[in-house]
Structures are given as structure tokens and as C-alpha cells.
Amino acid sequence: MTERIVVVGAALYDGGRLLAARRSAPAELAGRWELPGGKVEPGERGEDALVRELREELGVEAEPLARVPGEFDLGRGYVMRVWRAKLLAGEPLPLEDHDELRWLGPDELWTVDWLPGDVPAIHALTATQVTG
């Protein structure tokens, strides 16, 4: 069995709105939307990876709050674990791998073209309906 690569996704909330990020790379993902995040480094806790990735990708400080139940298959050996997180400081900017960010209110969640692996995560978020 091949080793799974764990990716963290941030359900980053501010004022009840969820941050979505549009991929600019790689080409096969460009133009689709995802929860921001990235790979967990060897020996790194998921919560620490989330804080690091949000700092690197968006230039913000965030606090992980609670993990969303389940793991979400992204294909090609990748699995995503999602944490609800609260924006502490900074204004998110698309610094790496994204060309646009959008804050989505509860009634706007399905107005973007989510990557297939993120769709079950968004459903899991809306099923628990607790926003930070």
C-alpha cells in the first residue's frame, strides 16, 4: 500500500464568511476553487501545518479551532483533513498557487466551482453549521 500524503485545508472564517481560494497552478487545477492549505511536513501536527500554510499562502495569522470530522480523498494518494479556523491578523492575499480569494457567505458557498475533493468537505462544513 502506498503512503498517503496528508494535506490540511482551512475552513477560515471571518464574520461568518468562509474564505475560498482559486487555484492558478498546476494547470489541471487552475480556475477551480478550494479551501486554502497544503501538505503536512513529516513530524508536523496538522494544526501546526495549517497555521504555517496560511502564513505562507495567504500572509495571515489564524487559529485552528476544531477539526471537521472525516478525511477527504483528493486522488493520487492525497487525503485532506479540514480544520475550522479563525482569522486573527492580516488581510488574506493570494501569495502562492492562487490568483483570487473570495469571502463567501452561507448563501454563496455554491457560487464557485469547487475542486472535486473539496466538495465533500464543504458539505461536511455546512452539516455542522458552526461558524467562528
Rank of each mutant, 00 (worst) to 15 (best):
G37P: 01
A25D: 09
R76Y: 14
P26F: 07
A121C: 06
I122N: 04
V119C: 07
R81M: 06
A85Q: 09
D107H: 15
G90S: 05
W83M: 01
L29C: 02
G117W: 03
T131I: 13
E3F: 03
A85G: 08
G38V: 00
L125V: 03
R4Q: 13
P42K: 10
W83C: 00
L104A: 04
D97N: 10
P64H: 10
E108L: 06
F72N: 01
L74I: 07
V8T: 04
E108S: 05
R76P: 03
G132K: 04
L109T: 05
V79K: 04
T128K: 09
T2D: 10
G117H: 01
E91P: 00
D113Q: 12
V112W: 08
R76F: 14
E63M: 03
R52V: 03
V40T: 04
L88K: 09
D113M: 03
V60S: 02
D73F: 14
D14N: 09
G132E: 09
E57Q: 07
V51W: 01
G132H: 13
A27L: 13
L95F: 02
E3G: 05
E71A: 15
P106T: 04
P116Y: 12
G90E: 07
A11T: 02
G132F: 08
A20C: 06
L95M: 07
E44F: 10
W33S: 02
L50Q: 02
E100F: 08
S24D: 01
G38H: 00
L125G: 02
G16C: 09
P106R: 15
R23L: 11
D113W: 05
M80T: 06
T111S: 15
R52K: 13
L65V: 15
G43F: 10
Q129I: 06
L35V: 04
L50Y: 00
R67Y: 07
G43A: 10
L87P: 08
P36S: 07
G15P: 05
R81W: 10
T2W: 06
A30R: 15
P92C: 10
P42R: 08
P42W: 13
T126C: 13
D14K: 07
A85V: 07
G9M: 00
R81E: 15
D97C: 02
G117I: 03
A11H: 04
G43S: 12
A85P: 08
R84M: 11
H98A: 11
E63L: 11
H98V: 03
V130N: 12
